[in-house]
Each structure stands twice: as C-alpha cells, then as structure tokens.
C-alpha cells in the first residue's frame, strides 16, 4: 500500500519549562488526510506537544518538518508556514473587538491578499458549514462557547490550512455544547482534512481518529489505531489511564 505523503515530521523534540521536563524526545509523523488524537492525563505534555507543532511554544531541541521546511531553522519564515497550519484553542481566542465575519476575513485579506468580496464569500460558505452563517454580523463577545468554537474553526479554515491543530477544543464548553463542535470536526475528518487533536473525549477520539497517541510524562507511551489502543492496550500505564478514565465516567 502506498503511504500518503508525510506533511508533518516531528523529530526528537525536547522541551523544558524551567527545570521541569515536559517533552522528552518526541518522534511523530503525520500523514496527509490522517487524523491523530493525542490523549493522556493532564501534565503528560500533550498540549505542549501540540503548541510546539506551530512553535507557539518553541522546543529546546529537535526538528519539525512541515511542507519540507524545518520550523526550527532560524532562517525559515515562520509566519509564512503558520499560515498553512490552522489552530483551534481551548479558550477559542476569537478577536473580541470584531464581528464573526471580521474574525474570518481579517487574516486572509491581509496575509493572503484575498479580495474582500472573495473573502466574504468564502467566509459565508464556511460559516454555513459550521452552522454560524446567520451570526455573521454579530460581535463575537455575544456568542456562546460552542458558537465561538465553531467560528474559530471557520476562521482557521479561511487560510486553507494543510493541517489543523485542535487543543482540547471542547474542554471549556458546557456539556450540551460539546456535540455541536465535535460534529463539525467529524465533518472535517470526512472531507479528508489532516488533523491533530488533543482531547479528553475518548469516544470522539475513537470514532474520528486513524491513530491514537497516548502520552505519559513527556513521551509517547503508546500509539496505535483506536482499536488497538482502546481494546488491546499493551502498556501498563495505558491500561491504568483507560481504566481510570472509564471509572471516572461511571461516577
């Protein structure tokens, strides 16, 4: 079988915060159209790993190859590469001084030199897709969490990213809003978007991912298909984590 192209290649990255080792040698390839979910308990380094992928946190050491360029190379145009990586944050981070529409069109107009009419048209299509079209003129501060997160996804998609990074996209949401956001992400997966998702939603990860990464203490403890990892975990710590998770869910 021909493997799809690798679009993100993470080679041996290390990261410390002060003296605390957060990432201790991570190697990971993300292939085109692949959906990879990263799970693990808090403090395992999963969010830091994701934030290292577009250098919001800069690794102390290692290489991150994206579209053939090493993000860790000081000479590389980081802003330019970031335009091709969409990111969705736990706390949405919509631009609070703008409307839904302005949040979507600002970056493509000023960075991709897209014509305003074209940007508006594209935004309308994407907002329709995430079910937010009728809110296009609403200031984002008036939206609920789930609505904000759907707009944040549309905003990231405006840049035609090669890959989407999701940092616990539903962790800050009220339970009844989790579904609307996850269904948007599932739709993206169906369309073949390459995605890396840090999540606590195990059922969602099982359903949407091609591969699950389980992180523990700054390393990838185990990785595999959802079936392998959830049904047949090899590592003791994976088993312990999944057991703890299942237990918590019963309470």
């Amino acid at each position: 079988m021909l493997m799809p192209e690798v679009i993100l290649e993470i080679k041996n990255i290390h990261k410390k915060f002060d003296d605390q080792v957060v990432l201790n040698g991570i190697n990971l390839d993300i292939h085109e159209q692949e959906v990879v979910s990263i799970i693990g308990s808090s403090g395992s380094g999963k969010t830091t790993l994701l934030r290292c992928l577009n250098l919001l946190n800069e690794p102390d050491d290692g290489h991150i190859l994206f579209l053939g360029e090493d993000l860790m190379d000081p000479k590389v145009n980081l802003d330019h590469l970031r335009m091709r990586m969409g990111m969705v944050f736990q706390s949405f981070n919509l631009f609070n001084h703008q409307t839904v529409m302005d949040n979507c069109i600002m970056a493509p107009i000023s960075l991709l030199k897209m014509k305003k009419e074209e940007a508006i048209q594209k935004a309308q299509i994407l907002l329709e897709k995430v079910g937010m079209k009728r809110f296009e003129q609403v200031p984002v501060t008036q939206l609920s969490g789930g609505q904000k997160q759907r707009v944040a996804i549309a905003r990231a998609l405006m840049m035609n990213p090669k890959i989407m990074l999701f940092d616990e996209p539903t962790s800050a949401l009220d339970p009844e809003m989790v579904g609307e956001v996850l269904s948007v992400i599932k739709d993206l997966a169906k369309e073949g978007m390459t995605m890396v998702i840090v999540t606590h939603e195990m059922d969602f990860a099982k359903e949407v991912s091609n591969r699950i990464i389980f992180m523990d203490q700054g390393v990838i403890a185990e990785s595999g298909t959802p079936n392998e990892l959830f049904k047949n975990p090899k590592e003791e710590r994976t088993k312990a984590f999944l057991k703890r998770y299942a237990h918590e869910r019963l309470i």
Binding site: D79, L94, N96, H97
Partner: peptide
C-alpha cells in the same frame, strides 16, 4: 488575554501585525 496574541500568531500574523490589528484596538 494572551490568547488573543497567540490566535493572531497562529494565523500567520507577525508580532507587530498582531499588535496593530488585534492588541492595540482592544
């Protein structure tokens, strides 16, 4: 919130562009 700057940077804005377009207006 520092998430405002991070969101702008993640879209590809430089630090200065982010200041002018996102941080200063607010």
């Amino acid at each position: 919130d520092k998430g405002q700057m991070e969101a702008a940077r993640s879209l590809g804005f430089s630090k200065r562009q982010s200041m002018f377009k996102v941080i200063f207006p607010q």
